[in-house]
């Protein structure tokens, strides 16, 4: 495994018991964002400043006058999170230069945005932050839509998904565009570290958080955040759905370190995408040929990743005994 990083999180027992992201918040029952934020702060520790775009996590964790955060935290608009995170980082450097802050003291700056605040509205600020090379860890929790405002589509909504702005009728059959490749966009800025993580694989996820935080310069971790409310599945299924995303190849856990791509959760045999789709009400309208289109998109994505790695890390679809391919 790789070099420059010092990983403290070896297995699930490495995670400290104490919490810096506390319960009592207003995230929906079964919202996997809670799981993600808890572990992010366990890795980051108390010398951390969190800069949070508006979105599900922001509105639900800070119902005034309360806060779930145990570290300094600032609320922002959708569009300026990465800009403010850049400013916070610059201010810390300035204080160190002026001798008002111990130059040895490590203060981590973590920017958190949802897919709306990252893929769409906050994109230019994020681009600027990465271009200028700020030492900020950017975490995008992706629930594939504007969920707390009433399930509107975003640039992260996948093909075929119902939302209130991609309704299902005779002519429109849910989202008809593809999900944006946010990691591709980040990498185009030449950032040293980017990764895709998933809370159903907690050790892998926290190791990526660790690496991103230790990276000198901008880093981005794209985390899948299964959404019980917007994806229309039972609250108890959040982790199961997240796991199925990986098992079907819809979501690939990978990281790019200094240009080298590594798939961190190899999947020797994939499950058909149907397994993932059928648990979610937002895909309930899909007909067999539409599911086939999604399967082909996933096959393409898997092929592309395998090619980049140079070997087959994600295997073919295993249709099991009944051989029911799209039927």
């Amino acid at each position: 495994m790789s070099s420059a990083y010092e990983l403290r999180m070896k297995n699930i027992w490495s995670l400290p018991r104490g919490e810096l992201f506390h319960g009592g918040h207003n995230l929906c029952a079964g919202c996997t964002a809670g799981t993600i934020m808890r572990h992010l702060l366990k890795v980051a520790g108390k010398d951390t400043i969190v800069v949070n775009a508006t979105g599900c996590v922001e509105v639900s964790t800070t119902p005034y006058p309360y806060t779930a955060w145990g570290v300094p935290w600032i609320h922002l608009a959708f569009e300026n999170t990465a800009a403010v995170a850049s400013g916070v980082e610059a201010a810390i450097n300035a204080l160190k230069l002026k001798g008002q802050l111990d130059p040895e003291k490590e203060v981590k700056v973590i920017a958190i945005g949802g897919d709306g605040g990252t893929f769409d509205i906050g994109l230019q600020a994020l681009s600027g932050m990465m271009e200028r090379g700020h030492n900020v860890t950017y975490i995008v929790y992706d629930n594939e839509g504007y969920m707390n405002t009433g399930i509107q589509r975003s640039g992260a909504t996948p093909f075929g998904a119902w939302t209130t702005t991609t309704p299902v009728g005779r002519r429109i059959r849910g989202e008809w565009r593809r999900k944006k490749d946010i990691i591709g966009i980040a990498l185009a800025h030449g950032i040293p570290y980017a990764a895709a993580a998933n809370p159903a694989y907690p050790v892998d996820m926290v190791q990526k958080f660790e690496k991103a935080i230790q990276t000198e310069g901008p880093s981005l971790v794209h985390v899948l955040m299964a959404c019980t409310t917007g994806w229309r599945f039972e609250p108890r299924l959040g982790i199961k759905v997240s796991k199925l995303a990986v098992e079907t190849g819809v979501w690939i856990n990978y990281e790019i370190e200094e240009g080298r791509l590594r798939v961190t959760t190899p999947v020797p045999k994939r499950k058909p995408v149907r397994e993932y789709l059928k648990l979610q009400g937002r895909f309930a309208h899909l007909r067999d040929f539409e599911i086939e289109i999604i399967q082909e998109m996933v096959d393409e994505q898997v092929e592309r990743i395998n090619k980049m790695v140079g070997k087959q890390v994600i295997g073919p679809v295993d249709y099991g005994g009944d051989g029911k391919k799209g039927a």
Partner: peptide, 12 residues
């Protein structure tokens, strides 16, 4: 908000 983790006082 001056009290970190104050949502712990809310009852779920």
């Amino acid at each position: 908000v001056r009290e970190p983790g104050s949502t712990l006082r809310l009852d779920k």
